[in-house]
C-alpha cells in the first residue's frame, strides 16, 4: 500500500516535470521513468501473484519503459531537435494547469466510488491526471515530437485507468493494445523523419498547407 502510494506520487511528479520541460531529451527520460513505474502498478494491486503477472510486467516494462522511449530517442537523434520552440501555452501556465487538472481529478474521483479506491486513494486521481495531462501536451505544444510524447503519456494514463477499473486483465488483449501503440508511435516517427527531409523542421506551425 505504502509502496503504491510512493510510486503514484513519483508518477505525478514525472507528469509535472514533463509539463514544465522544454528539452525533448529530458521528456524522453521522463517517458522511461514513467513507463517503468506505470508497468509496475498492477503488481501492487494484486493480492495473489502468479508467474504470468510477473512475466507480463516484465514485457510491459520492456515495451513501455524501454522500446518506445528508445525509438523516440532514435528519431530525435536523426532529426536533431533539442528544444521545443515557443509553446502555445507557456511552461509556468502549463504547470499551473497540471495542478488544476490534479485538483479536478481528486474532486471527480470522489464521486466514482470504486472498490479499489478505498484501498489506494491516490490511484484514480493519478490515472485521470496522467490521461488529461497527456491530452493537454498534445494540444499545447508546437513540435510534432512533443505531441507524440503527449500521446504516449496519455496512453500510460489509460493503462492506469484500466488497472484501476478492472481486476481481470486479459494478457493477450493488453498485449494487442500495446502493440498497436508501439506500431503507432513508430509510424508517427517514420512520418516525422520523412517530413524532416522535406520541411527541414517539424514545427507544426509549418504544417499548415492543408486548411480551408
Amino acid at each position: 500500500m505504502q509502496h503504491t502510494n510512493i510510486i503514484l506520487s513519483l508518477i505525478l511528479i514525472s507528469i509535472l516535470s514533463s509539463l514544465s520541460s522544454s528539452r525533448v531529451l529530458f521528456l524522453i527520460k521522463i517517458l522511461v521513468f514513467q513507463g517503468v513505474l506505470v508497468s509496475l502498478i498492477p503488481l501492487f494491486l494484486r493480492e495473489d501473484m502468479a508467474l504470468g503477472d510477473g512475466l507480463f510486467s516484465v514485457i510491459m516494462i520492456g515495451i513501455r519503459g524501454i522500446l518506445i522511449p528508445w525509438f523516440m530517442y532514435v528519431i530525435i537523434k536523426k532529426i536533431a531537435i533539442k528544444k521545443e520552440v515557443e509553446p502555445i501555452i507557456g511552461y509556468h501556465a502549463s504547470i499551473f494547469i497540471g495542478l488544476a487538472i490534479f485538483v479536478f481529478a481528486i474532486y471527480i474521483s470522489q464521486k466514482f466510488n470504486l472498490p479499489s479506491q478505498q484501498k489506494i486513494p491516490l490511484l484514480v486521481p493519478t490515472a485521470i491526471t496522467t490521461l488529461m495531462s497527456g491530452m493537454f501536451l498534445v494540444m499545447a505544444r508546437h513540435k510534432a515530437i512533443t505531441m507524440i510524447i503527449g500521446y504516449v503519456i496519455m496512453e500510460n494514463g489509460i493503462y492506469l485507468v484500466g488497472c484501476t477499473l478492472s481486476t481481470h486483465i486479459r494478457y493477450i488483449v493488453e498485449f494487442g493494445i500495446l502493440l498497436d501503440v508501439l506500431v503507432g508511435v513508430m509510424l508517427m516517427g517514420i512520418v516525422l523523419n520523412n517530413i524532416n527531409k522535406t520541411f527541414d523542421d517539424i514545427d507544426t506551425t509549418l504544417l499548415q498547407n492543408l486548411k480551408e
Binding site: 510534432a144 500521446y151 512520418v191
Partner: peptide, 17 residues
C-alpha cells in the same frame, strides 16, 4: 509530398488520440 506527409501526420495523431 509535403501535403501528403502533413495529412498523414494529422491522420495518425488525431485518430490515435
Amino acid at each position: 509530398t509535403r501535403k501528403s506527409l502533413e495529412a498523414t501526420l494529422k491522420y495518425l495523431v488525431i485518430c490515435s488520440v
